[in-house]
Design a protein around this nucleic acid. Sequence first.
DNA 1: ATTTAATCGAGACGGTACGTCATGTCTTCGG
DNA 2: CCGAAGACATGACGTACCGTCTCGATTAAAT
Lengths: 200, 200, 200, 200
Amino acid sequence: MSEHDAPAKPAKSARPHTGRRRNEAARRAILDAALRLLADADGAPVTVETIAREAGVGKQTLYRWWPSKGAVLLDALTDRAEQDVPAPDTGSLRDDLRAVVAATFEGASAPPTAPALRTLAREAARDPHLADLMREFTGARRAALREVLERGRERGELPKGRDLDLMVDQVYGVFWYRFLLGHAPLDERTATDLADSLVR
Amino acid sequence: MSEHDAPAKPAKSARPHTGRRRNEAARRAILDAALRLLADADGAPVTVETIAREAGVGKQTLYRWWPSKGAVLLDALTDRAEQDVPAPDTGSLRDDLRAVVAATFEGASAPPTAPALRTLAREAARDPHLADLMREFTGARRAALREVLERGRERGELPKGRDLDLMVDQVYGVFWYRFLLGHAPLDERTATDLADSLVR
Amino acid sequence: MSEHDAPAKPAKSARPHTGRRRNEAARRAILDAALRLLADADGAPVTVETIAREAGVGKQTLYRWWPSKGAVLLDALTDRAEQDVPAPDTGSLRDDLRAVVAATFEGASAPPTAPALRTLAREAARDPHLADLMREFTGARRAALREVLERGRERGELPKGRDLDLMVDQVYGVFWYRFLLGHAPLDERTATDLADSLVR
Amino acid sequence: MSEHDAPAKPAKSARPHTGRRRNEAARRAILDAALRLLADADGAPVTVETIAREAGVGKQTLYRWWPSKGAVLLDALTDRAEQDVPAPDTGSLRDDLRAVVAATFEGASAPPTAPALRTLAREAARDPHLADLMREFTGARRAALREVLERGRERGELPKGRDLDLMVDQVYGVFWYRFLLGHAPLDERTATDLADSLVR
DNA sequence: ATTTAATCGAGACGGTACGTCATGTCTTCGG
DNA sequence: CCGAAGACATGACGTACCGTCTCGATTAAAT
């Protein structure tokens, strides 16, 4: 996820690489600065210029490695939250579901992540490139949740006919809808209710 | 891209301005132009400048009557789709719900509305003012749906403990989530499944 | 010289002008700021951004009225030094010539003008647009000097065969050559010697 | 514009790099490329990047051997036109002068040199380093011409009081002034007239 | 019938951010 | 250790929109 399609392209056979290598420190500085700004400015602009200055980096370096500002932001976010797609397997669908939903709600509501995620969504709205990346990102999340549901169905905890994709979207739909509009809470109670409403 | 110098039929002659009273023709021209651009440019910018030019109107006229570009866009959209909040009352919660959900899905997927709504959501992401308006707009929709649910509960079709707000958000959450990401259909089948999953 | 071709363009008959008029204060502020920077920074960059900031003006305003940074600089310089093309008429070619050359040398060496003129020449080297303007500007100067010479020739102070254009270029050639390279002085003594060498 | 992706025959194969010793072939390739670009792009930018690419050379190789881009350009030009400072000695000042001036005019007007020289002057305007080199270069030319004049004065062809430096600058002043502005010719007729006007 | 005042189209204004370009330095690798 | 490749920090460039602010012309209501 850290790049987009870094791999392969062996091409020119004999010359695997020439020239100075990518500066890992600069990459980190950029992602850190991006995350910091994303978190600090709750919904505020977050300009490319600011990220670059904050990271002590030239704008060009940023544009060299990421196709758009949004890509940096998403990268910054996922790079940190890489592993936290839980997908537990307790043997009970209800429990698994409650855990996943609660973790999703809580993870996204925690102080560093929430504003960052919000800003990210805002940026994705006008940056088609970032929108694609977001689609990819959310796709991964959906897939993880779907697996939990499939396990439950195999255990017979769900009727064969249930539309699993719809169930997944009910979870993430509620999450994003409330997260972005902010008209209702995303607390543990809600998580439990939501999970229960699905496995009824 | 349909922007910079579209044929731009400003209809100059047919709409003299009035003085003293608000010029209704200008208002219509603006809303029409906004809707047209909103629909044409699926996700494209839609600048204030463009709306004004397309409507054959000065920017100030626009800012005189709407507090922000977003307000115009939302106005343009709702002005047309004012009445279509159905809220039927068949006596059966399941049937009412199926109808509302299906109507929501279908109404938003129809050619003129879908791109407009999508663009609107995109604009709302960066325009706090429009975001507020959207909150209001979606609030009205939620209230309408909630009424349907309340009627059902009063008829005993729902247990007392059910969180009606959560049910409402499951409907609109799924709708917006799929509508904006576009990873899964918003067809009649889905509408029925979703409605049924709630009144199980 | 202040613009480029502001006049005329009656065109559309009935509507001589619409929209806000050009802000003369902004124009002055820009020219003043440009001249100040031109003078202060002897050869230093003088960026568009700086001029705009110094003048308290948006960059766009600058680009709206001048086709290039260089145009602003030249305008700033000529706008102030408009009238000082002397072209005296004492009745004696030698005296006229001495006066013109000395005035040219002195005018360009005076503290506010010299650095500005130097910067201008530097900018003209990379800005084709400004180069054109400079050609125009120097052309006017040459024409003025040529008139002095023509008067002298008519009085019989110069043989019919003398190439007046060459004489003019000897004056301005020496001036610019020394002015830009700075290897030799442009003092009154030199002015006299140069004038005398031409009317020998 | 002959820049971004010109056919760019880097002549990759024919010039393997050496290691340890300075690669004379690289030096030649750089000077040749510089001269070619200098001549081709009459007034166009001529970036370091372009020279390097055109020469099939890394930028660093360039900066290792020359202190600035301008140094390369000047080197490229003089390297070729090294010897043509004529300084003839016919015994007649008028004839010597006519020869030098005509040679200067003609040498600089020849197709390969003129655009290169023009670009060089343009670059010198913004590159202080190159400006210094140009000062040196022109200084040498002036010295050569001054010698011719001194010989003439010793032969009594010039009065003791004449300011030789001024005479020199009249020649080179006219040359550069016309060369850079291009408002009048630098032909043989002009050369003769100019020489004659000095020894009158 | 005049005045008055708000409307209209047009468009200039001060800003902010954008994405690109060139410079000169630096780092890496193969020969 | 040279040379090609190319990443890096810097900083100016010219463009796009934003929302505000004049303009002169138009026109309905108040005098």
